[in-house]
């Protein structure tokens, strides 16, 4: 071990000891002091009832499959619509100026509205116009609301990716005689999309959580199922079950997004 390595080893050891002590301290406070609070017994019964956990879990897990299904068919639609809007906002031809205005207005409107509002307005409003079944399904229109909203975010991310591709790349493509369209498709977009994968991963994670908002217009997904159990048992444990199920999915996903982001940062530096 040379001098630097010895120094770094000492530093690591110190950090490890510090981290261990502080972690133990926090755990001790949680385990010892929280139960000493006067209301702990009540809180434990209301939020961490083993009984309710066991009884509600199977149905909660099943309800979560609906979240996954809605997410699974929404995500590709978000990618497609988001891309189209980003392209509309990125067109350069003056003749297509209205398209740019449309893209900008779309993004402004749907980024400016709370998702749940869009879900209400579209989920109840459009079917209320008199669409016959099954075209008035809350699954369809709830999905449309979710896709419209998240496409706006994804479009903005994609557009920033498109703009981050240096103008010289476009120039290189054009100088070879390629059309604007081909330059966008073959040169700019592949680079732009790669750059914004981590940001879009975070968007997808957010959307995965917001699928739960579809419950406002009827579908019994995990959050609604938790609400039903809460009502039946007069107990909040089902929400803890829902939280646990969400975390099982979102933690690995966020870790993966962070990993992608770090890898990209390392590759650039």
């Amino acid at each position: 071990m040379n001098r630097r390595e010895a120094y770094e080893a000492r530093q690591r050891k110190r950090a490890l000891i510090l981290a261990t002590i502080s972690t133990l301290l926090v755990v001790a406070i949680l385990v010892i002091f929280v139960p000493m609070a006067p209301g702990w017994e009540q809180v434990r019964k209301s939020f961490f009832s083993g009984d309710v956990f066991v009884q509600s879990f199977p149905k909660m897990a099943k309800a979560f499959l609906l979240n996954i299904a809605i997410f699974a068919w929404s995500a590709p639609l978000v990618a497609i619509v988001g891309l189209l809007i980003a392209l509309a906002r990125s067109v350069r031809s003056p003749a297509l100026f209205p398209l740019r205005i449309f893209g900008a207005a779309y993004v402004d409107i749907f980024r400016g509205l709370p998702v749940v509002l869009v879900i209400y307005l579209i989920g109840f409003g459009i079917p209320g116009l008199g669409l016959p079944r099954p075209y008035n399904s809350p699954y369809i229109w709830g999905t449309v609301a979710l896709v419209l909203t998240y496409s706006a975010y994804v479009a903005e991310i994609l557009r920033s990716g498109i703009e981050s591709v240096h103008a010289s790349q476009r120039a290189a493509g054009l100088s070879l005689g390629m059309s604007e369209r081909s330059v966008m498709r073959d040169i700019v977009l592949p680079q732009a999309i790669r750059r914004v994968v981590p940001a879009n991963m975070n968007m997808l994670i957010a959307m995965q959580k917001d699928v739960a908002l579809l419950s406002f217009i009827g579908p019994v997904e995990i959050l609604r199922q938790a609400g039903i159990f809460k009502s039946l048992f007069a107990n909040f444990t089902p929400y803890v079950v829902a939280a646990a199920i969400f975390l099982v999915v979102t933690i690995p996903a966020t870790r993966y997004a962070d990993y992608l982001m770090n890898r990209q940062r390392d590759a650039r530096s």
Partner: peptide
């Protein structure tokens, strides 16, 4: 088919008006 579930009576009525239930 699985029932749909609503927060309150007003939303259930809205769904009925929209012919969703």
């Amino acid at each position: 088919s699985d029932p749909l579930f609503y927060d309150d009576t007003a939303n259930a009525v809205a769904a009925m008006q929209a012919d969703q239930i």
